[in-house]
């Protein structure tokens, strides 16, 4: 009975893409973040083919070349590493591995975690207990340490790295999904579907999953940033990606011994990580509002006023 503005008039809705754009435009930070991420993504896809050769070309006369030498080729603008390889080109090339590992781990953990979460939330107490204990085992231990140990035992390869990162992140999705399923399955519209005779599978995938999905998308975006940081840390410790492959984390680690005379070796790849994770965080914050029907009006209102 409180103040509500839902009058019996039927509110028209705009087309999906236009609405998304409008809501992005309303949050300028998220807008810039989205554009930055698109650029990073494009560079990561075309980077190795485009600059791969250049990034591996040693140039002993240009060792630890300082940045901001605008007179040289643009790939040298951020300086060069200890073997004279252009840093900017290397950062662009390394972006592919960095994003590949992170997206691989996020997709794997999200799919497996969501699936297990749906089962844990929807099935009987016994199955649910087993799954939750499994998650507890993983959660009761710092994920980076699990990764260190497992990678040490299994040897480090991109696949192992992705798998290990994915396993440590599964509980995040599992718990969120289960908690949401437990709540949603008591909602009236699920009961209504049961009364109509809908099968469990139908209820799970037609009614529950679409409602959980926005939360999971927001979570995955945030987690992408987390996984990227974790991968960088592992590579930094020397148990992630192995040379000659490169990632941003590995580049920081390689630059570490030149800290005193060539700070830029570690600084630029670090900045690449920060900007990417920052963008992901900003976008995830935006999603939290944009995907929530109760809060969405904040963005729609602003979007209309500005555009």
């Amino acid at each position: 009975m409180s103040l509500s503005s839902t009058d019996p008039l039927i509110i028209p809705e705009q087309p999906f893409l236009k609405r998304v754009f409008g809501m992005l435009w309303a949050d300028k930070f998220a807008f810039v973040a989205a554009i930055f991420l698109i650029i990073v993504l494009v560079l990561a896809v075309i980077g190795p083919d485009w600059l791969g050769e250049l990034a591996g070309k040693q140039n002993l006369r240009g060792r630890n070349l300082a940045p901001f030498d605008w007179g040289r080729e643009w790939v040298y603008w951020l300086g060069a590493d200890a073997l004279g390889r252009p840093l900017l080109a290397r950062i662009i090339v390394a972006g592919q591995n960095t994003l590949m590992v992170a997206s691989g781990a996020v997709v794997m953990s999200a799919v497996v975690g969501t699936f297990l979460g749906l089962i844990a939330g929807f099935s009987g107490p016994r199955v649910s207990q087993v799954i939750m204990r499994l998650a507890d085992v993983i959660m009761s231990f710092p994920s980076l340490l699990i990764a260190v140990i497992v990678l040490f035992l299994l040897g480090s390869s991109i696949l192992n790295l992705v798998a290990v990162l994915a396993i440590t992140r599964i509980p995040v999705y599992l718990r969120t999904t289960r908690a949401e399923v437990l709540e949603i399955k008591e909602r009236m519209f699920v009961q209504a579907a049961r009364v109509m005779g809908a099968s469990s599978r139908r209820i799970l995938f037609r009614h529950i999953l679409p409602v959980v999905l926005p939360t999971l998308t927001t979570l995955a975006t945030l987690d992408f940033a987390y996984v990227m940081l974790a991968e960088s840390a592992l590579s930094f410790l020397g148990i992630g990606i192995q040379p000659p492959e490169i990632t941003w984390g590995l580049m920081i680690s390689q630059g570490r011994q030149y800290l005193t005379n060539a700070w830029w070796l570690s600084f630029w790849p670090g900045l690449a990580i920060i900007l990417t994770t920052l963008s992901l965080n900003l976008l995830s914050n935006w999603m939290r509002i944009a995907l929530d029907p109760v809060q969405r009006w904040r963005l729609e209102m602003k979007g209309r006023k500005n555009g």
């Binding site: 909602r187 009961q191 209504a192 009364v195 009614h207 409602v211």
Partner: peptide, 16 residues
């Protein structure tokens, strides 16, 4: 043959 109408239609209709 047996159907039900719930108390709060806001909740008994899937919003998506």
């Amino acid at each position: 043959e047996l159907q039900m109408v719930f108390q709060d239609p806001t909740q008994s209709l899937n919003p998506r």
